[in-house]
Simulated scan of single mutants.
Amino acid sequence: MDLEAVRRERSEWMKWKNIAPLREALEKLPSFGAAVTLGNTVELKTEEPVDMAEVERIARMMMPWRKGPFDLFGLFIDTEWRSDLKYNFLRPHFNLHGKKVADIGCNNGYYMFRFLEDTPTKVVGFDPSALFKSQFDLINRFVKSDIVYELLGVEHLPFYEEKFDVIFCLGVLYHRSDPVAMLKSLRQGLEEGGEIYLDTFIIEGDEPYALCPSESYSKITNVYFVPTLKALENWCLRAGFKSFEVLGTVRTTSDEQRKTDWIESHSLEDFLDPDDNSKTIEGYPAPIRGYVRIKKG
């Protein structure tokens, strides 16, 4: 696969009529190295003069903001997801110091900014979204990190110029119609001995089964399979992984995912049965996430 050709093609996405105004506005903002606090909120501070009305105008042009939260010089971007909860759940299980790290489905880069506290050798994000890359570019205009953001997907990982020591793939697997093929792509992106931190929707049960939604799951139309942990383990074994470790399971609640004025769309409360929150609006078991670590070799 000619990745440079893919990159050239996707760079044209920045000229789309809904994206080009964002890019033009970004280029008019100042760029400087702000002080960054990598806590639950990725917080930026500066003594440089900043037109905060313009920063907020541009940030709101980039809605919806899904992952975060961020604080840009006092402008709090209260994202749909409290991504700090997922990050803090996983944090005790990894150390990225001196490692090459990839984030598949990196969205606006919230997790990648948090990774910087471990001083990895390199951080690369993969996400084919011109909007999310623009959000990342807004933040990174002031963070001025060396994070690389690629408008590529998991299918490009086997052909990427580098292999990674650690790959995070959070909330992506259920969007793929062939989960074993995706897991194989992830494995091909790893160095020998590398590891993957994976989270995906699961259903409860001890048998190797998977739910196959007919049209949507929690109003998400591109959810294809929701496995039990045993089914997920079998997928990983078929993809060639030798190690499968369950780190935990977490039921999604409104503490983690909810409507805010930074999304202007439906969220978890609209996706569940209003009379029985243990079920989705379609009648399926409500979202539970399984967190696992799988290793190559």
Rank of each mutant, 00 (worst) to 15 (best):
62 M>C: 02
107 N>I: 00
2 D>K: 11
161 E>D: 13
285 P>M: 11
70 F>D: 03
132 F>M: 14
46 T>N: 06
123 V>D: 01
57 R>P: 01
49 P>M: 06
36 V>K: 03
122 K>A: 15
262 W>S: 05
29 L>I: 04
193 G>H: 08
48 E>T: 00
62 M>P: 01
111 Y>W: 13
42 V>M: 03
239 A>N: 12
29 L>D: 09
26 L>P: 08
18 N>W: 15
253 T>E: 10
245 E>C: 08
110 Y>I: 02
68 G>A: 09
179 P>N: 07
68 G>M: 08
36 V>N: 04
191 E>I: 00
28 K>W: 00
107 N>V: 05
280 T>R: 07
222 N>D: 15
69 P>K: 06
122 K>G: 05
246 V>Q: 09
145 S>E: 02
236 C>N: 04
184 K>V: 14
226 V>D: 12
221 T>E: 15
218 S>T: 11
228 T>A: 10
226 V>T: 08
148 V>S: 06
268 L>N: 05
239 A>C: 09
97 H>M: 11
209 Y>G: 00
53 A>S: 14
264 E>R: 13
70 F>T: 04
120 P>S: 06
17 K>S: 14
142 F>D: 01
256 E>V: 12
266 H>G: 09
128 P>T: 09
157 L>G: 04
185 S>D: 13
231 A>H: 10
243 S>D: 12
273 D>P: 02
168 F>S: 11
228 T>G: 07
291 Y>N: 07
88 N>C: 06
147 I>V: 11
248 G>C: 13
171 G>K: 12
211 L>A: 14
177 S>Y: 08
140 N>H: 02
112 M>Q: 03
93 H>S: 14
53 A>Y: 06
133 K>E: 12
15 K>N: 14
62 M>K: 02
15 K>M: 06
110 Y>P: 03
166 V>W: 07
50 V>D: 01
212 C>H: 13
19 I>V: 15
83 S>K: 09
203 I>Q: 14
196 I>R: 10
216 S>Y: 04
17 K>M: 08
155 E>N: 12
165 D>P: 11
228 T>R: 07
165 D>S: 11
7 R>K: 12
173 L>N: 12
124 V>P: 03
185 S>L: 00
66 R>S: 10
110 Y>T: 03
11 S>R: 13
117 E>K: 15
177 S>I: 05
108 N>C: 14
238 R>T: 10
264 E>V: 00
10 R>C: 08
139 I>F: 08
44 L>G: 01
162 E>D: 15
